[in-house]
Design a protein around this nucleic acid. Structure first.
Length: 545
RNA sequence: GGCCUUGUGGUCAAGAGGUUAAGACGGCGCCCUCUCACGGCGCAAUCCCGGGUUCGAUUCCCGGCAAGGUCACCA
């Protein structure tokens, strides 16, 4: 068989010598320990938590080592392509502070461009052609129907499915048969002529999982599809080589195809990057756990966190705690330090899949948000409201000074007694709403109408907006005891039967009257912010209702 | 089914041949308290199973079992 001739027939035309590409994409001039990492999503437009998870690891490793992190778009499958996807990916990752140094639509050094695989078709073909010429790859004319029939027969016979060994029909086609098929215009793919043996085990050092055993690949995998575009396996080998990637952190769903990748690097004569296979994020689903799924789990979508108004840093912190188990301790000890100073370690990455825990994320969010100054909180909330807030919520931001005051006093931002129960921007809108509208009365009075009016009237008679918190409260106590309520909780608890209730019941009436709710931040503070006029107005409206 | 990976409380997990087996989240209870919140204190809960090695294994070895991943002209 004249392989050279076959290669020319399959991939006609002049391709550069392979050494051309080695020169065009030279090794990077970086320090010895510098890692070159990448994120290589396909442009489906859907970027999820798993992508972010892996992206953070790759980003940390690259930048911590003085290396480079780039964005490559794996668009070899035309069917999955969605317009605007790259922009969406870029924006989502930027929102969560993933910084790329170069790559698709990133700018930066373009020595290793293009970053879209479809634009690299010529490179792949040059190497496929070389493989064919060297007898390491061959054309396959099997149709999809034939292949699925093969698969069924193999399953039936309890054999391993796939295109390998005796089942690789086109592998043994004679020169005549090949050219007859070509002359007939039959579509073909190009397959790797695997030299592996599935009986052979080899040991492999995974950067995360440690030493593992893998089985040699013996599948004649497709490397060039009938549309002339390579499969992922082939494209990634070429790209990671020529983009001079040193370390690939990817999801463990790739572990199974590692043998293919090893053989590909070997037959191409490339040094391969090091690999680390990261556990995937799981979710409890009834009795079992499973990978987070795009269709069933809204919390998988990065968009979910933006809509809910999660503080991006909180998401990042949570990812980091899952990624490196010692991060949480470090963070506790170094709350002031930038996250970038944490010594991220590939070795510390977990080997088993972690359940995604929304409670934990929420807890982290509360802590993160409670650390913000009023100004920072304002900026964060405004950004969220501009995009996702209701028309009414957007109005909260019209009076900046007023809102800052609210933030300061009610949320305790910047102070010592801060609230720590706020997880998201969306949720904090509820808290803010007290100060902008009374809204619907969410909680009903628990006293009878007359008692309620008595309390309200009595309060109005003594109310002075200049009173400090203590005076204000002692006046409230007077109102309480004048109407038969216990002024001190102690007294009430000692003998509940002797009173109509306690100060807390009196305060509750007032609370509902001013805000419509039984649970609010400190009432004195609320009234202070609302101002005397608004407070009185709201209370008067409640009398006689 | 084949192959690979993983197995410490409900969750994330530290850990070492001998420990009262850390810590965090969640749960529960108590205290503080005008409600919410904040804060403080406390409680419950774990080494997948069976062999072996050993004076001693949750830790080392073997075998099970379970869970997850993967078996495309998708990545």
């Amino acid at each position: 068989m004249d392989c050279q001739k076959l290669a020319e027939r399959l991939l006609p035309g002049k391709y550069p010598a392979l050494s051309f590409y080695e020169e065009k994409y030279p090794p990077r001039a970086l320090g010895r320990d510098a890692e070159v990492t990448r994120l290589a999503p396909s442009p489906t437009g859907f970027i999820h938590l798993g992508n972010l998870f892996v992206a953070i690891a790759n980003e940390r490793i690259a930048h911590q080592s003085g290396g480079v992190m780039y964005l490559r778009i794996e668009d070899t499958d035309d069917k999955r392509r969605v317009d605007g996807a790259v922009e969406a990916v870029k924006n989502a990752l930027r929102y969560f502070s993933i910084r790329f140094d170069e790559g698709a639509e990133i700018g930066g050094d373009d020595t290793y461009a293009p970053w879209y695989q479809r634009q690299r078709a010529e490179i792949y073909r040059a190497f496929v052609k070389d493989l064919v010429a060297r007898g390491k790859a061959y054309p396959c004319f099997c149709t999809e129907e034939e292949l699925s029939a093969l698969r069924e027969a193999q399953t039936e016979a309890k054999k391993i499915t796939g295109y390998y060994g005796e089942y690789a029909r086109c592998r043994n086609l004679t020169e005549d048969e090949i050219y007859r098929n070509l002359d007939a215009g039959k579509p073909f793919v190009i397959r790797l002529k695997s030299e592996g043996n599935a009986e052979h085990k080899l040991s492999f050092r995974d950067e995360i999982k440690g030493d593992i055993t893998v089985t040699e690949n013996d599948q004649d995998v497709v490397i060039l599809k009938s549309d002339g575009i390579p499969t992922y396996h082939f494209a990634h080998a070429i790209d990671d080589h020529f983009m001079r990637t040193t370390l690939v952190i990817r999801g463990e769903e790739w572990l199974a195809s590692l043998p293919i990748h090893l053989e590909l690097f070997s037959v191409l004569g490339f040094d391969r990057p090091r690999y680390g296979h990261n556990c995937s994020l799981m979710k409890q689903d009834g009795e079992t756990r499973r990978k987070l799924s795009k269709r069933k789990d809204p919390e998988l979508s990065l968009e979910f966190y933006r809509q809910e108004g999660y503080f991006p840093r909180a998401v990042r912190v949570y990812m980091l705690t899952l990624l490196n188990s010692n991060f949480e301790e470090w963070y506790r000890k170094n709350p002031e330090k930038p996250l970038e100073e944490f010594p991220f370690s590939v070795r510390k990455m977990g080997k088993s899949g972690a359940l995604f825990d929304l409670d934990k994320l929420n807890d982290i969010s509360k802590n993160e948000l409670s650390c913000l100054s009023a100004e920072e909180m304002y900026a964060f909330l405004k950004e969220w409201a501009d995009e996702y807030g209701s028309a009414e919520e957007k109005k909260y931001f019209e009076n900046r000074d007023y809102l800052l005051k609210v933030l300061n006093l009610v949320m305790g931002t910047g102070g010592k007694k801060r609230r720590k129960d706020i997880m998201t921007a969306r949720q904090s809108m509820t808290l803010l709403s007290y100060f902008f509208r009374k809204g619907n009365r969410e909680d009903a009075y628990r006293t009878d109408a007359k008692t309620k009016d008595d309390i309200l009237n009595a309060f109005l008679n003594t109310y002075d907006c200049n009173d400090d918190a203590q005076v204000w409260f002692s006046k409230l106590k007077e109102v309480a005891s004048s109407l038969g309520f216990a002024a001190e909780m102690r007294d009430y608890k000692a003998d509940p039967g002797a009173y109509k209730g306690s100060v807390s019941d009196v305060a509750e009436v007032l609370r509902i009257a001013t805000t419509g709710r039984a649970n609010t931040p400190d009432l004195w503070t609320v009234m202070r912010i609302l101002g005397a006029e608004e407070t009185k107005k709201r209370i008067r409206e409640e009398i006689g209702t």
